[in-house]
């Protein structure tokens, strides 16, 4: 499934792009992230605990940054194994454009899940992916820019 969104961030593109590559910022923004360790500037291992309603699952996996094009954007990809719950992977193409002093962050997420969650939770997959994407970028925008987002499409 595909999820798109847009945030206005009250910061320069350079600042936003730097934050997108900042391990500490990513760890703080990835929903449920318990640890994020850098293996290289573009590769990290992550532990994430997700609690969606009655479901609670711990995922471990990696986060990869690619198509890096400062300060225009990059692609951030995560994939994790959640044990019995199955696995999830998702990539977000992030594009930054300047708008006056602000930066417009657009994201385009493509997410896939497999295993038990795909089999029994089909009705919730899209909503959950959207929620997580919104949480990540919402928190990111909040943290990097001063005022909270005004537009989430």
């Amino acid at each position: 499934m595909e999820i798109k969104g847009e945030y206005r961030i009250a910061a320069s593109r350079e600042k936003v792009f730097a934050a997108l590559n900042d391990q500490a910022v990513l760890q703080a923004c990835i929903p449920g992230c318990e640890s994020l360790e850098m293996l290289s500037p573009t590769e990290m291992t992550a532990k994430v605990r997700l609690r969606i309603g009655p479901v609670s699952a711990a995922f471990s996996g990696k986060v990869t940054l690619s198509d890096i094009d400062p300060p225009n954007g990059y692609k951030i990809t995560g994939e994790g194994q959640g044990g019995v719950a199955g696995f999830a992977k998702g990539g977000a193409v992030v594009a930054l454009t300047a708008d006056g002093d602000d930066t417009i962050l657009k994201y385009d997420v493509d997410a896939q899940v497999g295993g038990k969650i795909a089999q029994v939770g089909a009705r919730l997959i899209a909503g959950t992916a959207k929620k997580l994407a919104d949480q990540f970028f919402g928190k990111f925008a909040e943290r990097v820019g001063a005022p909270p987002p005004v537009a989430a499409a």
């Binding site: 896939q112 899940v113 497999g114 295993g115 795909a118 089999q119 029994v120 089909a122 009705r123």
Partner: peptide, 11 residues
């Protein structure tokens, strides 16, 4: 992905 998304009586 080849995941069976109609994999229970829920779907």
């Amino acid at each position: 992905t080849g995941q069976l998304v109609s994999g229970s009586f829920m779907d």
